[in-house]
Design a binder for these strands. Sequence first.
DNA 1: TAGGTTTATTGAACTAGATCAATTTTTTTG
DNA 2: CAAAAAAATTGATCTAGTTCAATAAACCTA
Lengths: 189, 189
Amino acid sequence: MHPQLLNNISNYIKLTPEEKSLFETFWTEKKLEKGDYLLRNGEVCRTDNFVIYGTLKAFYINPIKGKEEILYFAIDDWWATDMESFQKQSPSIYNIQAIEDTKLLQIHFNSFQEMLNRIPKLERFFRIILENYLGSLQRRIILNNVYNAEQRYFDFLETYPKIAEKVPQYLIASYLGVSPEFISRIRKK
Amino acid sequence: MHPQLLNNISNYIKLTPEEKSLFETFWTEKKLEKGDYLLRNGEVCRTDNFVIYGTLKAFYINPIKGKEEILYFAIDDWWATDMESFQKQSPSIYNIQAIEDTKLLQIHFNSFQEMLNRIPKLERFFRIILENYLGSLQRRIILNNVYNAEQRYFDFLETYPKIAEKVPQYLIASYLGVSPEFISRIRKK
DNA sequence: TAGGTTTATTGAACTAGATCAATTTTTTTG
DNA sequence: CAAAAAAATTGATCTAGTTCAATAAACCTA
């Protein structure tokens, strides 16, 4: 298995060599081509997905205007999973799609449960992941209320420089809840 | 100990009578009067707080305008904790304050860790709590982008009728990222 | 129950950002 | 490398929601 996920985990918890080998048995690699869907609105998110390389977008289809609204991007070392749908095994309200060729590590829901039973230390890791994500969502809600479009755009560039590099401007606009034209005008300055 | 938290937990996991008594030893009750702060921006959130009754607001002070921006409300059976600050024992970026007389169940960070070690089943409960909160934050980000102020206001009334009843309109406006005057105009119709 | 404080309403003027439509630039692909 | 497709820019017009200031209700509290 690609070592990237274990490297990532080792930032938070220490696993024994035995635990590491056991851990690896639960995961499989998967490649997505640009445009491939990992999850569609209405489906249950059956796997937890860790990005080795590539970029994905999670988006919600606005039922009123038919436009897509970006919920988040996932790049190397991030997760591309509807955690709510995965944990409850209930239908997802959004879509996840590769916006460039992407490689993932995947684990199915049942394997995930078994893995946690066999390696209870991992509970801690996954709680930390959830908490980090939660913190970033809270921060985002605050920024959305406090800052105007320009400030949010520059904050995005600072906070996620790698994403800004990879992802087209009009998707960043959608993530920020701003029209692409307005982002263009901000940049003109 | 007030049975409300154990009742709440029993919706998600089953504890033995022994586990329940052990559980109770970790928690203490605390009363807050209207206006009391539970947490101030810059402090570490040292306790996890479950609301037995009352209402609190979590808010961020907008450094530009000096205004407060509501992040969330907590009422009976909810948690009033900066989970990020609590789990990392790092300074919080926001404030939590009682907006009416409130009673809490509290557990300190170290006790929380010990409790999880002694009753590992609880890991599951707290993960579910995190996931639920996460789902509601995601939903909120989507709604903010997709719906206009009027739709968001009516969605709030539907989703959180009990909060809408208890909390003044201008705080709901802030939660929704809208001016209080505009909420008033929406209601006029 | 009056007086103070907090909350809500209303009107008028203003603006951040949206929308629409056309054009240009960049990227992709056969 | 040419043509097509995708992404970005620009200008003109429009509007959802803000701001400010004044007034009116509602609600504490002594």
